[in-house]
Simulated scan of single mutants.
Amino acid sequence: MSIASAQYDDDEILAIARAAAALVARWGVQDEAAERLLNGEGRATALLGIHRALRCMFADSDRAARWIFVYSRAEHGDHLLAYKNPVKFVSDLSAFLDQ
């Protein structure tokens, strides 16, 4: 069962939301973009899935966090902070990491 399809109690939902908020802060996402990334069903779990995939690829957590910026520039010509559709970015990145 994937993390996105699991059933969570209120405490688990709050923990997932806190973890995802801390993650986008670590990635340096500004408030407005972070709000768009975090609001919506399944988005927090998608972000945690991206984090998990990156940590599987990179043992160093700083390198995993920096990779987000490299991917963003390579795929979209700009930094994640300035990318106009962060929800699409997460979707594209998830698809890329699943390949």
Rank of each mutant, 00 (worst) to 15 (best):
M1Q: 08
I3K: 07
S5M: 11
Q7C: 10
Q7T: 15
Q7H: 10
D10M: 12
L14I: 11
L14S: 14
A15M: 08
A17K: 05
A21Q: 07
L23H: 02
V24E: 01
A25L: 14
R26K: 14
R26D: 15
W27V: 01
V29P: 02
Q30R: 14
D31S: 12
D31N: 12
E32G: 09
A33L: 07
A33Y: 03
A34D: 06
R36S: 10
L37Q: 03
L37C: 14
L37G: 05
L38T: 06
L38V: 08
L38G: 05
N39S: 13
G40C: 05
E41Y: 07
G42Q: 10
R43T: 10
R43Q: 15
T45F: 00
T45G: 02
A46L: 09
L47E: 05
G49C: 11
G49S: 06
G49Y: 00
G49H: 03
R52M: 08
R52E: 15
A53N: 08
R55D: 03
R55E: 06
R55P: 00
M57T: 12
A59E: 14
D60W: 00
S61G: 08
D62C: 09
D62R: 11
D62F: 07
D62K: 10
D62N: 14
D62E: 15
D62Q: 11
A64R: 00
A65F: 02
R66G: 01
R66K: 07
R66T: 03
W67T: 04
I68V: 12
F69A: 13
F69Y: 07
Y71S: 03
Y71L: 06
R73T: 08
R73F: 07
R73P: 00
R73H: 07
A74W: 02
A74F: 03
A74C: 09
E75M: 11
H76V: 03
G77V: 02
L81A: 13
L81K: 13
A82I: 07
Y83F: 10
K84C: 08
K84I: 09
K84R: 09
N85H: 10
N85R: 09
N85T: 11
P86D: 02
V87I: 15
F89K: 00
F89T: 01
S91Y: 10
F96W: 07
F96S: 06
L97H: 03
L97I: 03
L97W: 00
